[in-house]
């Protein structure tokens, strides 16, 4: 069966690259979308959200992206992400702290000018936590060596 070759690229580096992917679930600007092999040539903008890469016989890979673009062409998927983090790279403590900070700032709301920025910050940390949480649950307690709680 045909497979997808997937590259997740940020301005700084190639974050992920695999040629044996079965499905990509991405947060498109017009709603969540799934790309399967033999998809038509397609380009969409992405909104901040969770990117899922499914591969037969392997765990799903979760990533958080903060906007960007996705291109499909001849079973080749290229995701140009503004920024991308793999679930295992996310620093949960820092994300929680960022979330608390953003919520505090929203509650206080001293400077209304920064409102959009704070909301964006909050959204980002929530997605980050969601992605990290999935990763943790999967490798969950008692299920073999737990890598995420190093």
């Amino acid at each position: 069966m045909a497979k997808l070759s997937v590259d997740v690229i940020t301005a700084e580096r190639v974050v992920f690259s695999d040629t044996e992917i079965d499905a990509v679930v991405a947060p498109g600007a017009a709603g969540e979308l799934t790309v399967l092999p033999s998809h038509a040539s397609f380009i969409t903008s992405l909104v901040p959200g969770e990117l899922r890469l499914q591969k037969a016989g392997a765990d799903e890979t979760y990533m958080m992206v903060t906007g960007g673009f996705l291109e499909v062409r001849d079973d080749k998927v290229v995701i140009l992400a503004e920024s991308a983090e793999r679930a295992e790279e996310i620093d949960i403590a820092r994300a929680q702290e960022a979330r608390a900070r953003a919520e505090r700032a929203l509650a206080g709301r001293e400077a209304a000018v920064d409102l959009t920025r704070i909301q964006a910050e909050l959204r980002r940390s929530l997605i980050r936590l969601k992605v990290a949480e999935r990763k943790r649950r999967r490798s969950g307690p008692g299920a073999g060596p737990d890598q995420s709680s190093r």
Partner: peptide, 27 residues
């Protein structure tokens, strides 16, 4: 030339892409 389907629309993707391109040039 490949015919792409653009979502939401070619113009919108294009307008999203331009500022990213400028950032990238500066970087």
């Amino acid at each position: 030339s490949v015919q792409y389907i653009y979502e939401p629309s070619p113009a919108e993707v294009f307008d999203d892409l331009l500022p990213r391109y400028v950032e990238r040039q500066v970087y």
